[in-house]
Nucleic acid binder design. Structure first.
Lengths: 292, 292
DNA sequence: TTTGACATATAAATTATTTTTATTATAACA
DNA sequence: TGTTATAATAAAAATAATTTATATGTCAAA
């Protein structure tokens, strides 16, 4: 069976018009008809119910089933190509979200340098979500990721590195600044300054506000720790982060005394289907050793 | 790209002789040569280093990388076919790890037979971990799974069936055989015989050894309850399982008196996104009724 | 060092598969 | 009822995969 037929099929379930799909792939319209026929013969099932008219085209249950697998197959194929490209250039691509990078990379870099491996790595700094996507697409060989709940994806391998608590950061001038520790619900009427989308702290924050029936007032989101800390120190709002972030003199870090607080979990993550060659394995072992 | 080429390639990495692979697929030897050439061109990388002689054939790093994905692709393709067949023939695929099967399947089978539904099910016997993966990948419609902690996964629906304790199994000749109950830490110097990877008891065992600061000596892992019980009865080592396993005359089951002992939880599990058609729903209701 | 056995590669021919061109069929709708 | 947009079909053409026949490379025994 040809992957091209699957690509036609996937596109057909999206565009829903044979001739438009043909255009998309720069082939003639009957090509799509024949491709679908081949698939239906191979699967021995009707995949699509055709309406000859500018109207709907219905994907059957069997079609939906095939669709899921077709997408997975195409993805595998593309990831394989990408991985092989990485192998050829003898590099290992590592995703390191900024907060985690701050905490772990200095030590990692030092160890890698000692082994003369530092120039075999390429690092990518995005939020955890984007990093995970990049890993799944094969763009990255490896990632250090933050998560709250243990990660739940059959395709990825996860090694837990560390679990650390979240804290609330407030200005020294803030009315809570003198408490040793607080409850999350004490923050009911605060203004918050948080990270942008795709950072793990947000998911944890969302869980806590939901649990406490709060509708938090988020006045700003930024990607820059410095920027956020600056605003907090000026008492513009309060922050909610793990202990990896460094904070200035006039900011206070408050413990949260709630039970069952979510933890910030750092994970070493890679695709189960990823093949590490000797050099990559060496780098992986080195990193593993550096952070444990 | 053709999946046939991938099949040739996978076989070639196993059999390692072009002409033998050709024989296997009932094609001529150059077919294999050309298939490999096509793949190498597509991936733009050498996949296999040939030795023209009856000797070794080396899979390159790129080849190994492709191999992993190739196997996944072929598997997806086969699962897709299987799923569609199931849809067409009105079958429901059920995952039943062996230990759970022993306990629940006789009753389930009896009820299903009464309703004339027994030939609408196909069962799969793997460890809990593999079963869960298979469920998530859509290979299974439904599973009865063991877990320690209640399962928490956004994508799956869980109905708890039962919670039962774990026990220690020892030979009658064993020095602990006369105790009514023991503490887990009493097992500090024992040799253990356990199940292989992917069974729930192992996770529970790991937690307990960690909690008690133990470094257990696991002398054997097996998938066969009979085999394990045989060894225990010969006083080769001790076992740690739930009460679903049956045990011979000369083996003794010991209670564990520790606080907060993990429990073996049996769950009925399916994907939230799964669509059960009428017949499948009937089977599900029947199973639910049988085990509660 | 030669020769035979085994294994893979290559060239050309053959066969199979996919795509195109040209045309027909079908439904909706103006 | 004719027009338009769309899919299906048939036959031819193009492309791709496989085979047959043969060449080439490598090892090991003579």
């Amino acid at each position: 069976m040809n992957t091209r037929d699957l690509e036609y099929f996937i596109s057909l379930t999206e565009i829903k018009i044979f001739s438009k799909v043909a255009e998309e792939f720069n082939v003639s319209q009957p090509t799509i008809t024949f491709a679908l026929k081949r698939l239906e013969k191979e699967m021995d099932a009707k995949l699509i119910i055709r309406h000859r008219t500018h109207g709907e085209l219905i994907v059957t249950d069997s079609g939906k089933q095939l669709l899921k697998h077709a997408k997975a197959i195409i993805r595998h194929f593309e990831v394989a190509k990408q991985n092989i490209d990485n192998l050829k250039s003898n590099k290992i691509s590592i995703g390191l979200p900024p907060i985690i990078e701050t905490r772990y990379f200095p030590k990692i870099a030092q160890h890698l340098k000692e082994e003369n491996l530092l120039n075999n790595i390429i690092t990518f700094e995005y939020g955890s979500e984007t990093t995970l996507d990049a890993l799944k697409s094969g763009e990255l060989d490896l990632a250090l990721l933050g998560s709250i709940n243990p990660m739940e994806d059959a395709r990825i391998e996860t090694e837990e590195i560390d679990q650390i608590p979240f804290y609330v950061y407030v200005s020294k001038k803030h009315h809570l600044a003198n408490q040793k520790s607080i409850k999350f619900s004490d923050l009911k009427h605060e203004d918050f300054i948080l990270f942008k989308q795709g950072f793990v702290q947000n998911e944890s924050f969302r869980q806590l506000t939901k649990k406490n029936g709060m509708h938090p007032n988020i006045i700003l989101r930024s990607n820059e720790t410095n920027n956020i800390m600056n605003l907090i120190s000026n008492n513009v709002g309060v922050g909610f982060f793990n202990s990896f972030v460094s904070y200035p003199e006039n900011v206070v870090r408050l413990k949260l005394e709630d039970d069952n607080m979510p933890k910030f979990v750092t994970n070493l993550v890679y695709l189960k289907s990823h093949y590490f060659n000797d050099l990559q394995q060496k780098v992986l072992d080195n990193i593993r050793h550096s952070i444990k």
